[in-house]
Write a protein that binds this DNA or RNA. Structure first.
Lengths: 249, 249
DNA sequence: TTTTATTGGACTGTCAGTGGTCTAAATTGG
DNA sequence: CCAATTTAGACCACTGACAGTCCAATAAAA
C-alpha cells in the first residue's frame, strides 16, 4: 500500500480549528459530515455510481470516528443519495443533470411506438421502391435468423429482430433513413425494452410477429408498396396494443 | 505481506492526480478502467469496428489483473459499446458522431425530403398534443427570429430555421423524436444544402415559408392537430417541388 | 490441409478490503 | 450527577482483485 497517501492533513474541518481554538466548529457532528458529503454529491464532485472512499478512510480524513461517519452515511442512504454494499463500498446514487442525456433511458415504450409509427410506414414504402436484389437477400437472411430463433432465447430474438429491421432500413438506400433507424434500434434493444419484451413476448405473439415479418418481406420483394405499408402499420398497431395491455397488468 | 512486492505503479487515474479540493477522491478498480476505455471509445480514439488490445495487454497497460480488465470489458459489452469474439478479439461497436457528417454528405436533397415527409407530420401531431406553454414560448421566440432575419443573410436564416424546427421537435416532449430530429437538422444545415438553398430561396419563397411557419405555430398553439399536420405536409411538398424544379434548371 | 500462436471464456483458491454489528470506554452538554 | 453522543476496537460475512490454469474458437503460418 501507499503509505504516503494516508499521511494527509485532516482537512479544514475539525481538530485543526479546535487546536486553534477559534470557533466551536459550528456543529461538527455526524450531521456536519453528512452535509459536506451531500453537498459534494449534489455538486457533482462524485459522479454517478462512483465509489466513495471507505468508511475508515473517511473517518480519518474528517478526523472523526468510523461510527460518526457511518451515521452520516446512514443519513445519505436514507435520502437515496448513496447506496452501500457490504464488501464492496459506498456508491453515489444521484445523477446530476449533466449526465442523464441518455435518450434510450428517457424514452418510454409509448414514445418509441409513436416514433416508429411515424417513420416505418414511409420506410416500407421507400424500401419497396429502392431495394436491390442484394438488399433483399440480406433481408431474407435476417428473416430466417429471426424465424430459426429459439423461443426461449429472448436476447437472441431481440438481436435478430433488430437486424431484420435494420435490413429493412437498408433497403431504402437512404443514408439518412438508415442512420435514423440505427438510432431507433439502439433504443429498441436497450435493457429497459428487453424486460418489457419478456413480459409481452408470448410464443403466440412471436409466431404472429414472424408471420408479419415474412409478409412484409414478400411484399417488398414483390414491390407491392401498398401492402408493405399496410403490414407495417398493422404490425406497429398490434405492438402498441400489446404494450398498452402489458402496462395495464 | 511484502509491501515492496506490491509497490507497483497503480492505474493512471488513482488518487494522486485528483487534488480537486477538500474531499478525498473516489477510488476505482474495474469501474475505473471501464470508465477510461469508455471515454476513449466515445472520444473516437478507437474507430468503429476497430480492435482493442488483447485483454492480457490491457491488463499489463493498466497494471491490473486480467480478471479486472475482463470485468471492465464486461461492463462495456453490457452497454453495447464493445463486441467480444473468442479467438479474435474485442471490437468497438459504437459509431462516433464523426460519421454523422458522412451521412450528411451522402444524403441527397430528395432523400432528405423523403425522410422529412415521413417524420414531420407525425411530429406536428405529437407537438400539438404535448407542447407545454414553455415549449410554445420557445417556439414563438424561434419564429420571430426567423421572421426578423435579413433576406440576404442566408446563413442566419438557415440557422434560425433549424432552431425553429428543433423547437417544434422539442414540443413533442419525446426524447427519441428530439434526438432523431437533431440528426435530421445536422443534414439540413450541412454545407451542401446551404448551396442548394441559395439557389432556391427567393424572397417570395422565403415569405411563403415564413407564413407557413407562422401558421404551423398558431395551429399547434390552438391544439389544432389536423391543421398542423396539413400545414407541415404542404410545406414539405412545396419544398419538394421547389427542389425538383431547382435540380432541373 | 495441418500446425501453431493468439484470443476470449471459464474456473479455482487466496487474500486484502468493505460495510454490518456489537461492546465498552470516553467525551460532551445539561 | 445523568443522559446522549462520540469514540475505539473487535469480529463477521461478503465482495472484488488477483494469479494461475485450462479450454474452445479463431487466425495466421507452414
Amino acid at each position: 500500500m501507499n503509505d504516503e497517501a494516508k499521511d494527509e492533513r485532516p482537512i479544514e474541518g475539525r481538530e485543526s480549528d479546535r487546536q486553534k481554538g477559534q470557533l466551536p466548529s459550528a456543529v461538527g457532528g455526524a450531521a456536519s459530515i453528512a452535509a459536506q458529503l451531500r453537498r459534494a454529491i449534489l455538486e457533482g464532485s462524485y459522479g454517478y455510481r462512483e465509489r466513495l472512499p471507505a468508511e475508515r478512510d473517511l473517518a480519518q480524513h474528517f478526523g472523526a470516528s468510523r461510527s460518526t461517519v457511518r451515521e452520516a452515511l446512514r443519513q445519505l442512504e436514507e435520502s437515496n443519495l448513496v447506496i452501500r454494499r457490504v464488501g464492496s463500498g459506498t456508491f453515489v446514487n444521484h445523477r446530476s443533470d449533466a449526465e442523464d442525456d441518455d435518450v434510450a433511458e428517457r424514452t418510454s415504450p409509448i414514445e418509441l411506438i409513436e416514433v416508429r409509427l411515424a417513420i416505418e410506414p414511409q420506410m416500407a414504402r421507400l424500401a419497396s421502391v429502392h431495394a436491390t436484389q442484394r438488399d433483399l437477400d440480406r433481408m431474407a437472411e435476417a428473416l430466417s435468423e429471426v424465424e430459426v430463433c429459439d423461443i426461449r432465447d429472448r436476447e437472441a430474438f431481440t438481436r435478430a429482430d433488430a437486424a431484420f429491421h435494420q435490413a429493412l432500413a437498408d433497403c431504402t438506400r437512404n443514408p439518412l433513413m438508415i442512420g435514423l433507424y440505427r438510432q431507433i434500434n439502439t433504443v429498441r434493444s436497450h435493457a429497459q425494452w428487453a424486460r418489457m419484451r419478456d413480459k409481452v413476448l408470448s410464443p403466440e405473439r412471436q409466431k404472429s410477429y414472424n408471420d408479419q415479418h415474412r409478409g412484409l418481406y414478400e411484399a417488398i420483394r414483390a414491390r407491392d408498396t401498398e401492402n408493405a405499408v399496410r403490414i407495417v402499420r398493422e404490425h406497429l398497431e398490434i405492438a402498441h396494443r400489446d404494450l398498452v395491455g402489458a402496462s395495464r397488468s
